[in-house]
Design a protein around this nucleic acid. Structure first.
Lengths: 218, 218
DNA sequence: CGGAATCCTCTTCGATACTG
DNA sequence: CAGTATCGAAGAGGATTCCG
């Protein structure tokens, strides 16, 4: 079971030797959501064979990208989690997601989709460099979805719920519109000007928040 | 000739459908150096079959990442060049190279290496966010290699030679040491303090320049 | 029952030979 | 020089079986 290698003394080639094979970066995406069990990985990576998953897990563990971890809730069963080294792939995932947004188009007939993937994309499309003076708590409501978001020191985090006694800004509107803003297809100005978005709290904050994603001009 | 696809409605999966296959990102690296002819690509991607190269070139051209381009110097023969869309993969390459640096270690016995790869890595390891007040021209001399570098508005560029009538800062030292600074294995302070590096011109500028790469603490 | 190894088929890869 | 054709080897995908 010797790994295939490009055999080039080049940081790019060495990186691809480790994470460039089929499924690997999608596994990293799954584990960026949180620790996962073998079965969960298999279910969320349809098309991937069980033998391949087992082999990749072993390789990635040997490479120090993932480790076995307890899964909260279910006792007894061990799962897999990203190590710090694995987490450091975030800029790579971020780059690929930002580049891949333009390929999304309309969902194909047989395209799978999972809400967790959207959450990863949401985090990766948030641009820290645009998040000056946006610190605070936000609630995004779109259709039946509700997101609790904290921005602090140019970093975005998704929360299970808001802490007590904080001031939040609520942004509510059609999913397609909010989605378009986040994907950079519609400008935040345009969206807010359309009258389809309701704000509770500071309108200025809401505007700043929605401007933290790609601008359509780019 | 139907492309294999993950069939997931996710920007990451869509990006990997296009650039996630074997050799593809290495081809992008080659073309980031400059336009290349078929033969040159084949020579610089040892191990890649000629049939695969031809197939990938067609796919990437169909996807709008590359285009046929005239090669300067040799008339008659057409080559391949990155389109703007292809250039936009730079953050992905950058992320992978920064992540892959730690995997380099000592060159393996049968690892190939090409100076052009180092030049790409050099550009990708330069951190614009650290390049405040570094604008100017630099000459890097290490062993028999000489590099002409311009920094302007937080961007780095490699030049064939310095323009006339500019003030340059010359940094000269052992290749291994300069390399270690650029890879983030040695701090710029330590390198400059070792007495092994000679500076011609502004010592402050040289220091600022060498601090534009990864710091060892990270 | 969840976690993982085994088998078998099909696709892709890699190397060489060949053609316009 | 720029690709196409061919074929053995390796990898991927799916079902089933084994293990605890």
């Amino acid at each position: 079971m010797k790994r295939r290698s490009y055999r080039q003394y080049c940081a790019l080639a060495k990186a691809l030797d480790v994470v460039g094979e089929r499924w690997t970066l999608l596994m990293v995406r799954e584990l960026m959501i949180g620790p996962r069990r073998y079965r969960e990985l298999l279910e969320n990576l349809p098309g991937m064979g069980t033998n391949l998953l087992a082999a990749r897990l072993k390789e990635l563990e040997a490479q120090g990208l993932i480790e076995r971890a307890a899964i909260e809730g279910s006792a007894r069963t061990q799962g897999y989690a990203l190590t710090d080294r694995g987490q450091e792939l975030e800029p790579v995932i971020r780059g690929l997601i930002q580049w891949g947004v333009d390929l999304l188009g309309a969902p194909k007939e047989d395209d799978l989709s999972r809400p967790e993937w959207d959450l990863v994309a949401f985090r990766m499309l948030f641009r820290p460099e645009l998040a000056l003076k946006v610190d605070g708590y936000f609630v995004l409501r779109a259709d039946e979805l509700e997101l609790f978001v904290q921005v602090e020191a140019r970093r975005v985090a998704l929360l299970d719920r808001l802490p007590r006694d904080v001031v939040e800004t609520v942004i509510e509107g059609p999913g397609a519109l909010l989605r378009a803003v986040i994907l950079g297809e519609t400008s935040s100005d345009e969206a807010l000007g359309s009258g389809q978005i309701q704000i509770k709290g500071s309108k200025r904050q809401a505007k700043r928040f929605l401007a933290c994603f790609r601008h359509p001009s780019e």
